Simulated assay, not measured.
Amino acid sequence: MENQLEHIRFLVTKEILGTLSQEERNFLMEEVAKNPDAEETREDLLTVAQNPELLAYLHSERPAKQSALILDRLFARSRKVRIIYSIAAASAAAIALFFIIPQTLHLKSGKSNPSLVENQSVPATGKSVQLSLSAGQTIDLTEDTTEFTIGEQKMKTTGKTLTYQPSGRNEKSYATLNVPAGKDYILKLPDGSQVHLNSVSSIRFPLAFDENFREIQITGEAYIKVAPSAKAPFRVKLQGETIDVLGTEFNVNCYDSLRHTISLVAGKVRVHTEKNHIELTPGLEAVAGEDGFTSRAFDRYITLGWLDGRYILNNTTLEEVCTIIRRLYGVALQVENKALLQNRFTGRIIKGQPLEQVLRGLASTSGINYDQDVQGTYHIR
């Protein structure tokens, strides 16, 4: 077991230093997905390596073996190192909650993803989570415990969770749950399934499932736990794709209309498009492209971090970072210097921290400047 963890540490060290091959990455992600000790080992090493000065030192002009040895020694004292970093971070407001390291040594050029429109604004659907009914009625869902009735349908909100029970009548009525920027919300379906929606996301669902079939429709991002039922298959509709599910857990990300991603945590799913179909096993994700879906291993720490309020940046472009900020804070944000859009960052954004701290963190670690105009739009230069 210890030899296996030594190999995991070796691979994570290569990951941090940017020398990990695709084959090694696939193996590492598979081990992390199925082995809690491997996952903990990787998270510990990544935490140790999030100090900006340390990363700059490791990526300086020195042999890779020497950098790996330094990192391995730091990992052996990771508890002590984390305490030291915490004390240092507490004395620096710009780094206290926002750890972000510009990858100035690994800038990549090339065209942006065409679906990521420059300077796009992601509007909030409102300051509160809203439930829209097919009859045209809209209900604001507060975080206080509330019970209400729609026709014969009894519904209840507790905190950020909506639950309901079918009325018993076979009615084909639908509702849509809309989650605005900066919020997330959970819907518990009457069959025992659960859908956790990320910000700027929605779910359209029936107020009563058919006894032989269950179907929902998702936009944005959601983590879905499906209750098994041999009599009633479960189907998730996206824009252009269909996911057929047995009892399972998976993440759906369809923010980008041209690059949907379905990441399977447990169970089995089959994804259909007009061009092809693909079956997934745990630890793999399906990624949509021009020729249909392809599969690959995924990193649970990165993909599912949003469930814990952690938005992980892993060699992420400034363009993508700005998109995350828009979803989290519901603000208009423009990048005036287009040359900055492909700058890449590694680190994390913690949900709930003030926007000014995030922007100061970006500015202090990358040299960019920002300001806010009288209309409230932020400009990055």
Rank of each mutant, 00 (worst) to 15 (best):
I16L: 10
E24S: 04
A33K: 06
N35A: 07
D37N: 14
E39Y: 06
E40Y: 00
T41C: 15
L54P: 05
Y57T: 08
P63M: 02
L69V: 06
L74A: 03
R79E: 14
A88L: 14
A94N: 13
I100W: 00
L107V: 11
K111P: 03
V117N: 06
Q120V: 09
L131F: 05
D140K: 09
T142Q: 05
T142C: 02
K160G: 06
L162H: 00
D184W: 07
K188M: 11
R204G: 08
F205T: 10
A208E: 15
E211T: 15
E211L: 11
E211N: 13
E215S: 13
V226Q: 02
V226F: 04
S229Q: 13
V236Q: 08
T242E: 15
I243T: 07
L246N: 09
E249Y: 05
F250E: 08
R259V: 10
H260V: 14
I262H: 03
I262V: 15
V265Q: 04
E279T: 12
T281K: 00
P282L: 09
A286S: 12
A288T: 04
T294H: 10
D299E: 09
Y301K: 06
Y301N: 04
D308K: 14
A332N: 14
V335G: 09
N343M: 15
V358E: 02
L362V: 14
